[in-house]
Nucleic acid binder design. Structure first.
Lengths: 88, 88
DNA sequence: TCAGCATATAGTACAAGTGCTACATTCAAT
DNA sequence: ATTGAATGTAGCACTTGTACTATATGCTGA
């Protein structure tokens, strides 16, 4: 079983401007379930994770990870592209 | 919750010649758990699914799907490549 | 102001995932 | 022939995921 799983559901939702209820309805789960997931109170079943990834049209790993996601603007996000900014 | 989830754990194992026990040990789960998964008695938690994908070094979707995987040699596997065989 | 939406908290109930133990079968190697 | 590995079956205990209900808060728009 499981260590913690980090997710970017809230981010994806925000990016696309949809509410928990809307997402929940689309996925046909209870809207509180989305809340639990976003707050990290538990992580979804694989089935639900696949559905969520399908809904957002991204691979599962883009939304869920066993390791925390880097923040936007951090080094990790710009891997191999740092020169573009640092001016080389 | 969940409809059935199909997986290719047994295939991946076979391909790489490792036993359930070996896989289970590598993932630090009980070896019976792998059996349950392969037999489809239940599907893994997202945490375990991520671990399995990581172990086999493939995206989650390559191993798990809400729809049955096409058999090797079926049309779906050769999408856009059928002409190579049919001789056009 | 009030209505309604989005979110958080809490609690109950049930289903599903995992660990573990024991035992049966099949097969390969000695 | 016996041993040991890989697999299948069965059952029990415990944890986690999901549904659902109720209640509270804050924000926004009529």
């Amino acid at each position: 079983m499981g260590e913690v799983i980090y997710n970017r559901i809230a981010m994806l939702r925000a990016e696309r401007g949809i509410s928990r209820r809307q997402l929940a309805d689309a996925l046909k789960v209870h809207y509180q379930t989305i809340g639990y997931l976003e707050r990290g109170e538990y992580s979804p079943s694989l089935y639900l994770a696949l559905k969520i990834a399908e809904y957002f049209e991204v691979p599962v790993e883009v939304i869920f990870s066993t390791k925390p996601f880097p923040r936007l603007g951090s080094e990790d996000v710009h891997r191999g592209r740092r020169a573009d900014i640092s001016g080389a």
